[in-house]
Design a protein around this nucleic acid. Structure first.
Lengths: 152, 152
DNA sequence: ACATTATCGGGAACAGTTCTCAATATCGTA
DNA sequence: TACGATATTGAGAACTGTTCCCGATAATGT
């Protein structure tokens, strides 16, 4: 686990490397993403930091994305979701609740990931596709939307 | 492999069951989706059937989706992609070219899928999430965008 | 043939996101 | 500390993919 201070330093470095500043607004965004247990929508981000103006939030998310700090995810949920890139956190996948749209992180066992990587390499190489990374999304219903999973 | 005639009958049944008609425009959409080797965007759909008006195409894709014939996919590619649902075709995943946005289908070996299902069940049950289905997306560069995959 | 009802197609409306631009804050330098 | 150069900010306009609206049309059952 990386300390928060160390992570902030890494983020600053990546921004500075692009001639960008690590301003207050950008720092707040990173803090929110770090605290969340899954990718966050813009309304959720503004909800937890109401002082952030919408247009600046969108712009700074884009800057952070281009600096390799933030990853943008799009699903059928209306809003895009934003999270810190995996090399600042760790490799994980997503559970998507089809009822409320919430996305939360999960991790698979390392050996299974290795098996998957091999399988993906084999299957993509066969058609000349160069695989760079992968994403697994599990769709269903979260505990809050379906409290009694075995019910009637 | 299902014959095209049989598939068309299945589609018609699903529509009729909802009090909908299987009109020409809808049939053309299904034909295009069936012929494609991956999910298709609306511009691509209209490109191959220029007589289809945009608004009708969007509306009919929605009708087909609600009838359980079409699945709608959203990624970071600007346009949504549409494909026939898996129980009309077969379970598969997607390779997404980050350069041109094209999505194509791939299949994993059945035993690997079984392993994945087990792993997903275990990991989701642990947090009270009810898994219903999953999607795997492999991001990278397709053969056309990167013809010499090993080249400098 | 007719009545009923679903569908069509063109354009307006909508929502999420990006862009514009004048005002402001920040950084490096002297 | 003061200054000049430059990146950033924030409010709202603009943009884009998609959905909605509604009068006209086509399909279905009797």
């Amino acid at each position: 686990m990386r300390t928060q201070l160390e992570l902030q330093r890494l983020v600053r470095e990546r921004l500075v490397q692009q001639g960008q500043r690590y301003t207050n607004g950008r720092q707040e965004i990173v803090e929110v993403l770090l605290a969340a247990d899954g990718p966050v929508t813009l309304p959720a981000l503004l909800g937890s930091r109401p002082a952030l103006p919408q247009s600046s939030a969108y712009r700074n998310l884009l800057v952070l994305e281009q600096a390799g700090v933030v990853r943008r995810l799009v699903h059928n949920t209306g809003h895009a979701h934003y999270e810190l890139v995996e090399d600042l956190t760790s490799h994980h996948h997503h559970m998507i609740c089809e009822t409320c749209g919430t996305i939360s992180d999960i991790e698979l066992a390392t050996p299974l990931e290795a098996t998957l990587d091999e399988a993906f390499d084999a299957v993509t190489a066969a058609v000349g596709f160069t695989a760079r990374h992968h994403a697994i999304d599990i769709y269903g219903e979260c505990a809050e939307c379906n409290p009694v999973s075995g019910g009637s």
